[in-house]
Structure formats: structure tokens, C-alpha cells
């Protein structure tokens, strides 16, 4: 089966010479939810920006390849790649730039050429999925932070991507919003790659975790096994929150 995401030997150095990735291999198959873990400065954001061609060997010095459902990420394929890979950035204020929630969610599909009732339907379906349909006509900056994060996810869902890439989805959310977002993510029938420092969240949502450290993949295993491997965790500056022990969680409440 063709993986949804197939990253092979990806290396990248920024134009200023800083080498961020040293040969990363990553495969994500359809329907999987994978957490991408790693300390600050591990190269997670650099990797994410390669997934839809914002960064590539063409913008810096890179090697290797990224393929999305069999389609290589190249300049020629960019529009289709950006439809297939939906990236939700960390700060919703960066992602919501139109005057109303509706216009913002419509931005992506309209760029894909959708118009009229088909576009409306796409927009409302995406807002339904994140429970924000009632707020379609409000300006984004009047929403709460949690609501903005959900709308940011809807803007990407409206493009019907094959993989949803979330950058720190739980950051700055209060516990209730964080749980609501987890419920939403579980309800979506879509492949997810989630970049996060929130290890309990990774354990709750993602059966599999990939650990990136200093531009290399250093672990790719079940999230439970990663979080309970103390030597690995210590070696790569990963720490569980105080008082949290994955072993105390009943096995049948773990995902997948």
C-alpha cells in the first residue's frame, strides 16, 4: 500500500548554513494517528514545512524526497500537494486572516476552484466537524482562543486533505478546550500527524510516536513504549509532566 506520507532521506540546511535535518525517514499510512515528538530545536517545524513544499531543496540546501500518496512534492505539484497536506499552524491568528469565519474557511477550497453552493456546502461541513457552524458569520478575532484553534482546523478540513498536520494543537488551551479538541480529533476520519510537547496528549490520541532529535529520527514505536523508555526519554530531553505515569493508565483506554 502506498503510504500517505513518505519521507525519504530528507536533509535540509537553511540558507544561513544552519543544518536542521540530517536524513529523516518517515512513513505514515492511511488512517494512522502519529505523534511527532522532540525537544525544542529538534527540527520538527522544519520537517513540517517540507511536507507541503513551503521548504524544499529548492529554497535551501536539501536532499531526499517527500511523497504524498505517491505524488512527489515538487514545484509543479504544489497546489495539489497543499490540498492533500493540511497544516494547522500553532497560532490561529496567523491562519485566520479573513473578515469572517465563513470567508476564512472558504479561502482554501476557493483557491482550489470551488464556487457557489458546492463551496458553501464544503465550508459548512468543515465547520460542523469542529462544532463551529453556529459561528460562521462572526469575525475570527471575536472568538475565544479555543474556538479560533477549531476554526483553524476547519480551514484545513475544508480542503479535504489526506493528512492533517497539527503543530502543537493543545498549546495555550484550557483543560476543557484541550479535551474538546481531543474529542474532535478522534471523531475525524482522517490521517493525522501531530507535532507536540504534550506527551499525555500524544498518548491519549496517537498509537504511534516518532521522536525527532537534532534533525534525526531516533525512535519510531508505540507511544506507550516510547514514553516508558526512560533511557530514550532522558537522552532526548523528553519529560513527562510531574505525577504522570503512563503505566497507571488502563491498557484498554489507550488508542488503537
Amino acid at each position: 500500500m502506498t503510504p500517505v506520507l513518505d519521507v525519504r532521506g530528507l536533509a535540509f540546511a537553511y540558507p544561513d548554513g544552519h543544518q536542521a535535518l540530517f536524513g529523516v525517514d518517515l512513513h505514515v499510512h492511511a488512517g494512522e494517528r502519529v505523534a511527532l515528538l522532540g525537544p525544542n530545536g529538534a527540527g520538527k517545524t522544519t520537517l513540517v514545512l517540507h511536507l507541503n513544499g513551503i521548504l524544499s531543496g529548492e529554497t535551501g540546501h536539501g536532499e531526499g524526497s517527500v511523497t504524498v500518496s505517491g505524488l512527489p512534492v515538487t514545484k509543479k505539484n504544489l497546489l495539489e500537494i497543499r490540498r492533500r497536506v493540511g497544516i494547522v499552524f500553532q497560532d490561529p491568528d496567523d491562519q485566520l486572516f479573513m473578515g469572517s469565519v465563513r470567508a476564512d474557511v472558504a479561502f482554501g477550497p476557493a483557491n482550489l476552484g470551488l464556487r457557489g453552493p458546492e463551496l458553501d456546502q464544503r465550508v459548512m461541513a468543515a465547520l460542523e466537524q469542529v462544532g463551529m457552524a453556529d459561528d460562521a458569520d462572526r469575525p475570527p478575532h471575536h472568538l475565544s482562543f479555543g474556538q479560533r484553534r477549531r476554526v483553524a482546523i476547519a480551514t484545513v478540513l475544508a480542503m479535504e486533505p489526506e493528512i492533517l498536520v497539527l503543530d502543537e494543537p493543545s498549546s495555550n488551551l484550557d483543560p476543557a478546550s484541550r479535551r474538546e479538541l481531543a474529542d474532535i480529533l478522534r471523531s475525524l476520519d482522517i490521517t493525522v500527524l501531530m507535532v507536540t510537547h504534550d506527551l499525555p496528549y500524544a498518548l491519549e490520541l496517537c498509537p504511534r510516536s516518532v521522536v525527532l532529535s537534532q534533525g534525526r529520527v531516533v525512535a519510531d514505536a508505540a507511544t506507550y513504549d516510547v514514553l516508558t523508555d526512560e533511557a530514550l526519554m532522558r537522552a532526548h530531553r523528553l519529560e513527562l509532566p510531574w505525577g504522570f505515569d503512563p503505566r497507571s493508565i488502563p491498557v484498554d483506554s489507550l488508542p488503537g
Partner: peptide, 24 residues
């Protein structure tokens, strides 16, 4: 810098230099 991040987010959703007709 925020402007640059917004631009990235726009490119990620297929922006091609023209805002689509607002969906209203």
C-alpha cells in the same frame, strides 16, 4: 514576522496572489 507566518499559512492553502471572492 507575523506577516511572514500569515503568508506561509496562505500559501499552505493554495494562495496564488489573488483573494478568492469572499464566500458570503
Amino acid at each position: 514576522e507575523r506577516g511572514e507566518r500569515v503568508h506561509l499559512a496562505m500559501l499552505s492553502r493554495g494562495y496564488d496572489g489573488r483573494l478568492p471572492e469572499q464566500a458570503r
